[in-house]
Simulated assay, not measured.
Amino acid sequence: MARKLRTIGFDADDTLWHNEKFFRLTQDRFAALLADHAEGHDLDARLLAAERRNIGHYGFGVKGFVLSMIETAIEVTDGRVPSSVISELLAAGREMLDHPIELLPHAREAVEAVADDHRLVLITKGDLLHQERKLAQSGLGELFDAVEIVSDKRADTYARIFGGLPGGTEAAMMVGNSMKSDVVPAVEAGGHGVFVPHDLGWALEEADAPASKKFHAIKNLAELPALVERLV
């Protein structure tokens, strides 16, 4: 009997390893630096607006985040932001890029459990060099058959990646913590979408769950092997 599920795609940041918590720590540092110029909630809202504007220009990841912080700092100080603040923001960005990788609970066990019987593809957004470095440091690289670092995740992204593999999108699954980027477009492309919640989320990655039998939600990655087994 032919297997129903042949390919499993994994998101990286906040699915396999920690990411958002470092953005939050840096954002707290940003708020402290600009405390004399803007209230915390207002500053957060203005930074989020800048990130939303800039995604199309800078893409996803640390570099775009730092540039958005600098832009916001210039705005809230009416162009009078001290050079020392800019220097601290740049230093914070470098620290984020250099931070050691911390795997999330059950990440290695889950990937290893499904690696023998399925083709595994890491599909992640962000800066090419940074994502490659994180994968190398994670120790998971050898478990993946392919790595796709993309500018965005849409239905046509998954159709292209999964469509060229045995079984196509119908025999593919995408696992991730972002409903907007990992789950909804994968289901729209014809595959399975598995939502793995993370304690911290980014407002720009929020979306409603798809109304589809191919949508699945698990509490954590420890539950993934059993779900895969049911679908096989």
Rank of each mutant, 00 (worst) to 15 (best):
36 D>Y: 04
31 A>P: 00
31 A>I: 10
20 E>Y: 11
37 H>Q: 04
24 R>W: 10
21 K>T: 15
16 L>K: 13
27 Q>D: 12
46 R>D: 02
20 E>P: 03
34 L>G: 01
36 D>R: 15
24 R>F: 13
24 R>K: 11
15 T>D: 05
45 A>C: 03
22 F>A: 06
42 D>E: 13
36 D>G: 01
38 A>C: 11
47 L>Y: 06
21 K>Q: 15
20 E>V: 02
25 L>G: 11
15 T>W: 07
45 A>I: 00
40 G>F: 04
50 A>Q: 06
47 L>C: 06
52 R>K: 05
15 T>A: 03
40 G>M: 02
42 D>R: 09
42 D>I: 00
35 A>H: 11
14 D>R: 03
17 W>G: 08
26 T>K: 06
25 L>Q: 15
17 W>V: 00
22 F>S: 07
19 N>D: 08
21 K>D: 14
40 G>C: 06
14 D>I: 09
33 L>W: 14
15 T>N: 07
37 H>R: 07
36 D>K: 13
34 L>F: 11
22 F>M: 04
13 D>W: 01
25 L>W: 09
11 D>R: 11
33 L>K: 10
29 R>T: 14
46 R>I: 03
27 Q>I: 05
37 H>I: 01
21 K>V: 15
35 A>S: 14
33 L>P: 04
51 E>I: 01
36 D>S: 11
31 A>G: 02
52 R>S: 01
40 G>T: 12
31 A>Q: 12
29 R>S: 09
27 Q>A: 10
26 T>A: 13
18 H>F: 11
27 Q>L: 01
42 D>W: 07
27 Q>T: 14
16 L>W: 06
32 A>R: 15
19 N>C: 12
52 R>N: 03
12 A>W: 00
24 R>C: 11
25 L>E: 15
49 A>Y: 01
42 D>M: 01
34 L>E: 05
36 D>L: 08
39 E>N: 02
16 L>I: 08
45 A>D: 06
12 A>V: 15
25 L>Y: 08
19 N>Y: 10
50 A>N: 03
52 R>H: 06
46 R>H: 04
29 R>A: 09
30 F>S: 05
19 N>Q: 09
41 H>G: 02
34 L>W: 15
41 H>V: 09
35 A>I: 04
24 R>G: 05
23 F>K: 07
27 Q>F: 03
52 R>C: 01
11 D>A: 06
24 R>M: 13
13 D>T: 12
38 A>D: 10
14 D>Q: 05
20 E>Q: 11
11 D>C: 04
48 L>E: 10
39 E>I: 06
49 A>N: 03
48 L>F: 04
17 W>F: 12
43 L>H: 08
21 K>Y: 12
16 L>R: 13
31 A>F: 07
17 W>Q: 06
17 W>H: 09
42 D>C: 00
12 A>L: 14
32 A>L: 11
14 D>N: 13
35 A>C: 07
40 G>I: 06
12 A>H: 01
39 E>K: 03
52 R>F: 00
33 L>F: 09
29 R>H: 14
18 H>P: 04
49 A>R: 07
25 L>V: 15
51 E>C: 01
48 L>V: 02
43 L>N: 06
35 A>Y: 02
11 D>T: 12
20 E>W: 10
51 E>S: 02
18 H>I: 13
51 E>P: 04
52 R>Q: 08
11 D>V: 08
32 A>F: 08
43 L>S: 07
24 R>E: 14
51 E>H: 02
50 A>G: 02
47 L>Q: 14
12 A>S: 07
18 H>M: 08
15 T>C: 09
